[in-house]
Each structure stands twice: as structure tokens, then as C-alpha cells.
Simulated assay, not measured.
Amino acid sequence: MRAVAIHTFGRPEGLELIDLPAPAPGAGQVLIAAEAIGVSGADAVIRRGTLAAYGFTEGHIPGSEVAGTVTAVGDGVDTAWVGQRVWAFTGVGGGYVEQAAVPVAEVIPLPAGLSAADAVALGSSGAVAHFGLARAHFAAGESVLVRGAAGSIGITAVQLAARGGASAVAVTTSSAERGARLRALGATHVLDRSGAGGADAPAGYDVILDVVAGADMPAFFDRLNPNGRLVAVGAVGGQPPADFGAKLMAAFQKSMSFATFSAATVPPAALRAVRTAQFAAAGRGELHAVVHEVLPLEQAVLAHQKMDSGAVFGRIVLTP
């Protein structure tokens, strides 16, 4: 089968199309013929070599989620799975493939009204948005700022905060056109990437959900209300400065807090329940997945070039 691997860390051109033996499902696994593969910001971070210290090596196959049809099952798995349309979490890699052998515990049936492309635009990112807001102890009546709202995590977070009764849902984004699209999804105020603009926007926020991190993250502590909480759910802009905590200590009397969130810390049953509920809501049209573009698997380099350009709104999807 065809797959895409990281031949050389760095630019998108370091990705290459390769041939691998077709997998067979092992015990407790199902085999999925992929119809859609999600391309995430985390894939780009890994491709750049930023996380090499965490064990990622050249030769790694990026991608963490696929959607498609189960074609075979391994020992101990109910054969009723065969023929079902499903979404699956492939782990911290292994998703840029035509066929994926995945533990059945990581597989969720898809409702009839949800496309495979929409499923991979929502599956992983929707859960991060949900549990990121929970990590921030977001409650109805509080104000929320989503930093980096044009990606799939941010898009879902905007909708969840609005549906959850936020008093205001502000977003940072790079253009008026993106701001208008985010307003249609529930944003009430649109700021530029620095957090400026929006003359009628709140001066401070109870919750900031940060997908970007990077060098500018400490400046957003200044936008927190007393007892405000900033939760970093991504680092597509790179790592923050080593001394970023000095901002919090300097504002000690405001009792602000900072936390990180990774879906890896959520019990599998809780992840499954949230993803199942979100897929059902999306199938009913109550939650919107945004697919920026669908490209063939062999154009993974182009997909990553578009990601690096900052021009993507939502998620790029690859199809085998």
C-alpha cells in the first residue's frame, strides 16, 4: 500500500510517498480502508523535527486519525464491525496510509449523516476543544478568548463556548474574512493575531484557550481577568520563552493560572463518549466541521505547504 513518511525533517518537501506491505489486523484490531486522513498542526510540528527529542525520528509516518470502512478484523473482535463506516485514532503517527490496523478500542462508528472528511476534521480536534475548556473550568456567563481560532481546534472551541453560554467569545485570527466565518460559528469579537482590535471587545477574559503558544504567549496573560485561566492546547507557533511564568508571578495578586492540556491524559472511555456525542451532533447539523480542502495522499507535500503558509481555515484532508 502507499503511505507518506518523513524522509527528512524540516520543510514540507521532506515528506515522501513510499510503498509498504499492506497490514493485517492483529488481535483486538480492525483493518480500515481509509477514505479520509486528517492533516493537523501537530503533524507539521513533528515534520519540522521540533519534537525529535521526544522520540520522533526520520521515517516516521505522520497522521493521527483516519475515517473509512472496516474491511477485516483480528482475533477477538466481533465480525459485525466489517463493513461499518468508522473514525479511528491511529496514535501519534501512522495515519498517512491507505490502510490502517487500529485497536478496536480506538474506533468509533460514524452516523449516516457525517462524511469521512468531516469526521477527521472533528474527531481529534473536537475532543481537545471540549476537554481544553473543561481544563479551564469554563462556566456559563464567563468570557472566552480563543487564540488561533482558524484551525480545527479553535473552530470547535468557538462553537462549544458559544453553546455553553459564554458571555463573549473573542477570537484571534489573521483576516477579516476569517473573522466573518468565525462570527458565523459563534464568535462575538474578532481580534488580530496580537490580540489587538475589536474596540467593543472585553478588556479581559476569564478563559483563554491557546492553540498557538510561541514567543507571544506571555503577552496574553495581560488579557486575563482576576482568577483567569489560560490553557495551552497546542504549540503550532513553537515553544514559549523559558521565563514565561514570570508574567504570572508579576501579577501574583490577580490569582491567574496557566495549564497545558493533552488528550493523552483523558481516560479512553471519556474520550470515546465525547467523540461519539460530537459526531452525532455534527451528523444532525448542530456542530460544524470545517474542511479547508481535500487533496490526494500523494499531494501531502502540498498539504503541508498550505499549512505552513497559514492560509488554512479548518482542516486539510487527504484521500488515498
Rank of each mutant, 00 (worst) to 15 (best):
R2W: 11
V4R: 01
I6G: 13
T8Y: 07
T8H: 09
E13Y: 07
I18Q: 11
I18S: 09
P21S: 10
A22M: 08
P23F: 14
P23T: 05
G28I: 13
A34T: 05
I37M: 04
D43A: 03
A44T: 05
A44V: 05
V45N: 09
G49K: 01
L51D: 03
A52V: 04
Y54W: 01
G59H: 06
G59I: 06
P62F: 08
G63W: 02
E65N: 05
A67W: 00
A72E: 14
G74I: 13
D75G: 15
D78Q: 14
T79D: 14
W81P: 01
V82E: 15
G83C: 10
W87P: 01
A88D: 04
F89S: 13
T90F: 00
G91N: 08
G94F: 11
G95P: 01
Y96I: 04
Q99S: 09
A101K: 10
P103N: 05
P111Y: 07
A117D: 10
D118I: 00
A119K: 04
A121V: 07
S125W: 13
G126Y: 04
G126F: 13
A129V: 02
F131E: 07
G132Q: 08
H137Q: 09
A140V: 01
V144K: 04
V144N: 14
L145D: 14
V146C: 02
A150K: 11
G151P: 14
I153G: 04
A157N: 15
A157S: 13
V158Y: 08
A161S: 12
A162D: 15
A162C: 13
G165F: 06
S167F: 08
S174T: 08
S175C: 03
E177I: 04
R178C: 10
R178V: 09
R181H: 10
R183T: 11
A187T: 02
V190M: 08
L191K: 01
S194P: 01
G197L: 02
G197N: 12
A199H: 12
Y205D: 14
Y205K: 04
D206I: 05
V211G: 07
V212E: 03
G214R: 05
P226F: 14
G234T: 11
G238T: 11
P240G: 12
A242D: 15
D243G: 05
F244H: 06
G245T: 12
A246C: 12
K247Q: 07
A251S: 02
F252G: 03
K254C: 04
A259W: 14
A263I: 15
A263P: 00
P267H: 10
P267T: 03
P267A: 06
P267W: 06
A270W: 01
A273L: 13
Q278F: 08
A280H: 13
A282V: 01
G283N: 03
L287D: 11
H288Q: 15
V290I: 15
V291Y: 03
P296F: 08
L297N: 12
Q299V: 11
Q299R: 12
A300E: 11
V301L: 05
L302I: 10
A303W: 10
Q305R: 11
K306C: 09
D308I: 05
G314Y: 02
R315E: 12
T319A: 14
T319L: 03
